[in-house]
Amino acid sequence: MAKSEAEVLEGLAAIVAEETGLDAADVQTDKSFTDDLDIDSLSMMTIVTLAEEEFDVRIPDEDVKNLVTVGDAVKYITGAQA
C-alpha cells in the first residue's frame, strides 16, 4: 500500500528526529538537509538507509545528492513506491 506524501513526510520526519535529536515538527518540506537541519553526509546516508527500509524503496547513491530539501526526499520516496 503506497503512502501519501503527508504520510511519507511524517515517517521521514520521525527518522530524522531519531537520528539528529531535532524536533520532528521542524522537519518541513522546505527545509534543506544540510543548510537548515545541519545534517552531514554520513547522517544523510544513515537517514537514506533507514528510509529505504521504512518505505520499502531503493534510493541509489547517485540520486541522494539530488535530495536537497526534505520535500525533494518526500517526492522521491512517494514516487519510488509506485
Binding site: 554520513l42 544513515t46 538507509t49 529505504e52
Partner: peptide, 13 residues
C-alpha cells in the same frame, strides 16, 4: 539477515 544494503553508514566510525 537483511542484506548488505542495510548496513548503516556510521558502522565503521
Amino acid at each position: 539477515d537483511r542484506g548488505a544494503e542495510r548496513v548503516l553508514p556510521l558502522t565503521v566510525p
